[in-house]
Amino acid sequence: MFSGYTLGELGSILAMQGFAGLILFSVFVLMALGLAIIFGQMNVINMAHGEFMILGAYVTYLCSLFFQEYLPALFSVSFFVAMILAFIASGALGMFVEWALIRHLYKRPLDTLLATWGLSLVLQQSYRSIFGAREVGVTLPDWLLGAIDLTDFIQIPINGIFVMVLTALITVAVYFLMFRSSWGKQVRAVVQNRVMAGAVGINTERTDRMTFGIGCGIAGVAGSAFTMIGSTGPTAGQLYIVDTFLVVVFGGAASLLGTIASAFTISQAQSTIEFFMSGSMAKVITLLTVVGILMLRPQGLFTLKIRR
């Protein structure tokens, strides 16, 4: 499959595909960060995570429409406003769902899977009723369009760089929130021993609600980023949910570093193979490899060394 390309061309192809993979990587990481918090820390399987992401994407879409209509002068910053709104909308919905649904199911992780799947169906149909079945695209401000030419072969789109910088910032923020703040300490305490955490004065119910809300909020931001590279439709979230779960499981559920490493591996592998084969075969090969590795190493790439 490498025949017909010179070495230089091959290098450029790999670089270009690698960069395309980096954008996929950003969406994976943003999706997986929220999921890693919810699944890795709270042990809740949120099958509706993709729908929380799509909610963020729709909020971004509405926001860009609003700015185009009423505040065209400020359109260039609309994206930042949209991201904050997406975080708030998804986070609020997440907190509501936690209150109405998830808190009754903490002792039955497999049942959270079924219940949140039901939720995802309801959300999908809601999107379809409200926004229509057609996919919508977001108009980007001018400064996000275009590309930087590195060499004759290699072009780097600006929105890709933007998404990646954003991802890096959010990842750092999540790291500090989970591992360097008192709130993160509370979350981890509640997960490890709910009763003891309550006994030492942590409000476990509020901690759960906040954790779930923040996980979903990050999914909303992922949705914002997603609008730059794909069009938003009612079922777009479902396409990513299996991949994202695999990313989280592959990385080792409780490890933030593992999540990032596995998102990187999976997205790069997929986009590199994609160039040489059809997209569907690239996906099959990537998923099969991941499943195969998981069968050999079920605990994932990185595990926390703690005694269970």
């Binding site: 199911l105 079924l114 219940a115 799947w117 039901g118 939720l119 995802s120 169906l121 309801v122």
Partner: peptide, 9 residues
């Protein structure tokens, strides 16, 4: 979706 949620809860 409602059926899923109702059955589980």
């Amino acid at each position: 979706g409602g059926l899923f949620i109702a059955v589980v809860l």
